[in-house]
C-alpha cells in the first residue's frame, strides 16, 4: 500500500512535469485508436471489393472491352448511347418493373397474412415464428428445383391439381410460355423470400403494446378496425423500410430467375440483372454491360428516391 501510494505520487509528479511516465493518450483516445483498428478490416474490405469496383465500373463503361483482360480502347459515351437506344434494354427495364411489382404485391400480402398468424400466442404460432423461415434457408438452386418440379408440365403436382379441379383442361407449360413464365418465377421467388418479411413484420407487430388493443376493445373496435387503426399505423415505418429494402433486393435478384428459366423462354423473364449478365458473359461485351449497369444503378436510385418521396410515413 505504501509502495502503491508512492508510485501514485510519482505518477502525479510526472503528470505535472510532463515526465516520462505521463500518459500520452487519454482513455478516450486509446478507445478511438483501438476502435479504428477494429473497424479497419471491414472498411478496407468494403472499400476494395465494393467501392473501388463502382469506380472501375464507370471506367469500363467507357471502353469497348469485350473480354476481361483483353486490350480495349476508350470509346467515350458510345456504350451509353447504345444502351439508351437499345430496345432489349428498355424491354428488360419494363420486365424488371413487372417483376418488382409482382413480387412486392404477392410478397407483401402473403407476408402480412403470415405475420398476423405468427402473432397468435399458442404453441404452434410460437414455433412457427422460427420455422417459417425454412423456405428462406433453402439454397436458391434447391428452390429452383422445387418449383420446376411443382410447376412441371407433365408431372407437376400443381398442373395435375388444376386439371383435377377442372380449372384447366390441358396441362400448362408454365416455364415454356412467354406470359406464364414470369408468373412462375414470381411465385418461386415470393415463396423463397416472404418468410423474411413475415418475421420482420411480426417483430414490428410484437412491439405494439397490448394495452392499445385492450383500450380499443373497450372502445368497441372490431377486429378489422383494430387492424386498420392500430396494427397498420404501428407497422407503417417497418412496411416502408421493407418496401425499400425488399424492392431493391428484388430488383437485384438474379439467381432465382437464371436457375429456373435462364431468362427465357426467349427473353420473357430477362430482367435487368439477367440481361447484364448475358451481355457481359454470353455476348462478351463487358464494356456495354458496364454501361448498362451504370444506367441501371441510376434508374434504381431514381426509383428509390421517388418511392421515399411518395411513401415515406409522415413524421409527427
Amino acid at each position: 500500500m505504501v509502495m502503491l501510494e508512492h508510485s501514485g505520487q510519482f505518477l502525479y509528479a510526472d503528470l505535472v512535469s510532463g515526465g516520462a511516465n505521463r500518459p500520452i493518450w487519454s482513455r478516450k483516445q486509446i478507445e478511438q485508436v483501438i476502435g479504428y483498428i477494429l473497424v479497419a478490416p471491414l472498411l478496407c474490405w468494403m472499400l476494395v471489393v465494393l467501392i473501388y469496383p463502382i469506380f472501375s465500373l464507370l471506367a469500363l463503361s467507357l471502353t469497348n472491352t469485350r473480354i476481361i483482360g483483353a486490350p480495349a480502347s476508350f470509346i467515350a459515351a458510345e456504350n451509353y448511347v447504345a444502351t439508351l437506344q437499345s430496345a432489349p434494354f428498355w424491354a428488360s427495364v419494363a420486365r424488371s418493373l413487372v417483376w418488382l411489382l409482382g413480387n412486392i404485391f404477392l410478397g407483401t400480402v402473403v407476408a402480412l397474412a403470415a405475420a398476423l398468424l405468427l402473432r397468435q400466442s399458442w404453441l404452434l404460432a410460437r414455433h412457427a415464428r422460427v420455422w417459417i423461415l425454412l423456405p428462406w434457408v433453402i439454397p436458391t438452386v434447391a428452390v429452383s428445383v422445387i418449383w420446376q418440379w411443382m410447376l412441371n408440365t407433365n408431372y407437376g403436382v400443381i398442373n395435375i391439381a388444376l386439371q383435377h379441379l377442372a380449372i384447366t383442361s390441358a396441362p400448362l407449360n408454365i416455364f415454356g410460355s412467354r406470359q406464364l413464365a414470369m408468373v412462375g418465377v414470381i411465385v418461386a421467388n415470393t415463396w423463397h423470400w416472404f418468410p423474411l418479411s413475415a418475421v420482420v413484420m411480426f417483430g414490428a407487430m410484437h412491439n405494439i403494446p397490448a394495452d392499445l388493443y385492450e383500450a380499443a376493445q373497450i372502445d368497441g373496435a372490431n377486429s378489422w378496425q383494430q387492424f386498420r387503426h392500430i396494427t397498420l399505423p404501428s407497422i407503417e415505418k417497418v412496411l416502408f423500410a421493407l418496401g425499400l429494402v425488399g424492392g431493391l433486393w428484388t430488383l437485384n435478384v438474379f439467381d432465382t430467375i437464371y436457375l429456373i428459366t435462364r431468362g427465357g423462354p426467349s427473353d420473357a423473364t430477362q430482367t435487368l440483372p439477367v440481361l447484364i449478365y448475358d451481355t457481359a458473359f454470353k455476348g462478351q461485351r463487358i464494356g456495354l454491360a458496364a454501361a448498362m449497369s451504370v444506367v441501371a444503378i441510376c434508374l434504381l436510385a431514381a426509383l428509390a428516391t421517388l418511392y421515399a418521396r411518395i411513401a415515406a410515413p409522415k413524421e409527427e
Binding site: V48, I54, A290
Partner: peptide, 26 residues
Amino acid sequence: WMSRAILLIYLAPTTLLLVPIYSLLA
C-alpha cells in the same frame, strides 16, 4: 456515418457489380 454508409451498401445492387468485381479479381 459508418453505420449509415453500411446500410446504404447493403442496398447496393450486387449483381450489377459482377463485371467490375470480376475484373478486379482477374
